[in-house]
Design a protein around this nucleic acid. Structure first.
Lengths: 126, 126
DNA sequence: CCAACTGTGACGGAGCGTCAATGTAT
DNA sequence: CATACATTGACGCTCCGTCACAGTTG
């Protein structure tokens, strides 16, 4: 299995063994100690090659890979929070509109203070 | 100025010059071409030393530093969004409470539908 | 003239990829 | 027996930190 993984990643098998020894990849092992590389492993190997081609050290590659995962996680979190915030603001706007309409229609003889207050919040919320 | 910077960073002046040539640090220059290191530069030098002590390549150091700034920016953004979201939810809760109170106090003979609708939103909002 | 800066060139150690040798299982 | 895997040792190449030398400036 290491030969085809090396072929897919365009690297020497020895290099793959070295990377495993350094803890950069963790291929599965068969019962008879043969390395088994998953497609994710091969993909990681290609990523390692990109970084080493840029002149990166193996230690640097390791740290960069870890930082990249942290960064993508943080960016995903930013995206999720953005969506949540947009959803909440949209909901409050609908909320205000519904409340306003119900007040206007159902409670015609109301004192105008409550309605005015809600209107101001709506503008500020944008 | 390079000598005291090297002393503060516990590195050889030649190393500092090399780092500048590689673009890792950008010390200011005096009129007569002498390097001037700010405290931020020295701090960056110490960070570089930490990474190289971990076995990092210079290319790796460069990339790691860039990734770290991106990561901290993303984390700061996460923090800001979190705060904003908390603020918005808190404001909508106050909003509902104020509206509810004004309805209860000012408009006693109201049809109860509007009040009930607002109450449900408040619980869901948590 | 000395001290400290600038630059460039060279040397030694370490990391890394590859090759070679040897052993084992299919 | 041939093939593919495993491990280990050794060889070059490059990177990097340091030293050495030469030129400027205060």
């Amino acid at each position: 299995m290491i030969s085809i993984a090396a072929d897919l990643a365009e690297m020497h098998p020895q290099t793959l063994r070295m990377y495993e020894r350094r803890g950069l990849v963790h291929p599965r092992r068969t019962a008879k100690n043969t390395r088994l590389y998953s497609l994710a492993d091969v993909e990681r190997l290609r990523r390692i090659q990109e970084l080493t081609d840029l002149g990166l050290n193996l230690a640097g590659v390791e740290r960069v890979l870890r930082l990249e995962t942290e960064l993508t996680a943080a960016l995903d979190q930013v995206e999720a929070l953005r969506r949540e915030l947009a959803e909440v603001t949209a909901r409050i706007r609908d909320e205000v509109r519904v409340a306003e309409r119900s007040l206007r229609h159902d409670l015609v003889p109301v004192r105008s203070t409550a309605v005015i207050r809600i209107d101001r919040r709506d503008k500020r919320g944008q």
